[in-house]
Design a protein around this nucleic acid. Structure first.
Ligand SMILES: NC(=O)c1ccc[n+]([C@@H]2O[C@H](COP(=O)([O-])OP(=O)(O)OC[C@H]3O[C@@H](n4cnc5c(N)ncnc54)[C@H](O)[C@@H]3O)[C@@H](O)[C@H]2O)c1
Ligand SMILES: NC(=O)c1ccc[n+]([C@@H]2O[C@H](COP(=O)([O-])OP(=O)(O)OC[C@H]3O[C@@H](n4cnc5c(N)ncnc54)[C@H](O)[C@@H]3O)[C@@H](O)[C@H]2O)c1
Lengths: 207, 207
DNA sequence: TCGCGCTTGTGAATTCGTTCACAAACTAGC
DNA sequence: GCTAGTTTGTGAACGAATTCACAAGCGCGA
């Protein structure tokens, strides 16, 4: 399949959110124009994004909301449950463990890991906190799909190496560190400090 | 000034982080090649990024670590303190309020706001939680530069409209909602659900 | 002081992503 | 069934971002 741009995938996520809203409101169809207006893009962009995956609309009519919803879920791989582990049972780890939005979309948090003996054993927002020493054997047994790193920067690369070696192919990193992984492993980062610096730049360099 | 691409600004943030590390380790100079290797990009990219803002290196030698550090801080607008308010004293709001990394880089959290009367008045991780009713008068008085939205999606657009009307020009949004603001207001989003969906897509569509 | 090796800074070439523009396909009304 | 009015799907045109490639500048050692 042709390589799909990152920006396209992110927009598909956005469209999906709108479609869920439209379905709730009982709308039967939606046009690329409407999706574009909401998503802050253009109708041509919406159609192009979808065209990479097939032909989902009806000319003269638009897209059937339930059909496009199903198609987008399929494309994004949300037709199944994903098993997620959280490494680092701190503030961010706790916020994520408690967050209902993830489970709603099929991301099931199966366990958290920490090095701190005080945290190990105690549940974190209903999620079991296990010792880092178990990480490899647990991964071999539970076969999680995704690892979320919510640990300090210093340890992030070392822990990434461990989960990759154990067979994990997708990682979401919250530490403000640039991590390196083999090409067959996808690493995404949520870097709040970087976003704030982007705001600082924008505030500073406005004409 | 020529418009600077978002991707360039994000990379400058990354370079800045490496330079801080190099300074700590006492390194005097660094080459574009070294910065590129760490940042997962190319040396030409590093030099091009910097060239938009001036000429900071010495041919044959590389960049002086302290000089480039100063230059990058200047470019990103980190030479001053930014005043930040957090709207929404929930899990995410609390994690941010407590996070030391922000203050370290000059982002000073001056207050948090919430609608929940149980939260108003009590400090949140050392930050005062105020009533949303005060928002506009407080903004007029305290003149914060940046508003962080850590509230449910449903209210995000309405609250954005309020802070924009009160004069805020930079917003960081954590709600999984597509927000619209006037052109002179910069809105950045941290959307964890979207990143997870990106991982789901990558896991699903690998050949 | 000269030459060599190294690294920057930057136009030019290329690649990648977005927008344009229009034929094709559909609905609805008559 | 025909026409008018929509909206899709997609090559082609465009624009933005990245990579190439090399002249110019600098340090060092002879
Ligand atoms: N809190 C925020 O608002 C915020 C914002 C931006 C970025 N971050 C980043 O997110 C990461 C986590 O932040 P936090 O606020 O949750 O920190 P935290 O200190 O609350 O939690 C970190 C947890 O990781 C555990 N840990 C440390 N080393 C570990 C290892 N090698 N293996 C397993 N567990 C380990 C610690 O015991 C602790 O429980 C950090 O990298 C931080 O820079 C946090
Ligand atoms: N917790 C997570 O891990 C996580 C992950 C991804 C996204 N998010 C998003 O971040 C946002 C905040 O999440 P959270 O987990 O902190 O939620 P939370 O429920 O813990 O906190 C939300 C807070 O906002 C307050 N609030 C509600 N409406 C308000 C309004 N109009 N004005 C001011 N305050 C208001 C509530 O009283 C509450 O204290 C949500 O949009 C959520 O979807 C959270």
């Amino acid at each position: 399949m042709k390589r799909i741009a990152d920006s396209t995938v992110r927009r598909l996520s956005i469209y999906l959110r709108f479609l869920e809203e439209f379905e709730e409101r009982g709308l039967a169809t939606v046009s690329s124009e409407e999706l574009a207006r909401r998503g802050g893009t253009t109708s041509a962009q919406v159609r192009k994004d979808l065209s990479f995956f097939g032909s989902f609309g009806k000319r003269g009519l638009g897209y059937s909301v339930p059909e496009l919803l199903t198609a987008l879920r399929e494309i994004l791989g949300l037709g199944r449950e994903w098993r997620v582990i959280i490494v680092g049972a701190g503030k961010i780890g706790a916020a994520l463990a408690q967050y209902r939005g993830f489970r709603q979309r099929g991301f099931q948090i199966i366990a958290a890991y920490d090095t701190n003996p005080e945290k190990v054993g105690r549940p974190l927002e209903g999620v079991q906190v296990r010792d880092m020493a178990q990480l490899e054997t647990d991964i071999a047994r539970d076969r999680p799909d995704i690892a979320v790193l919510a640990i300090p920067s210093d340890n992030a690369q070392a822990v990434l190496d461990r989960v990759v070696k154990a067979g994990i192919k997708a990682v979401l990193n919250f530490a403000p560190a640039q991590l390196h992984a083999p090409a067959d492993v996808t690493v995404k980062a949520v870097n709040m400090a970087m976003e704030l610096e982007g705001l600082s730049f924008a505030l500073t360099n406005r004409e």
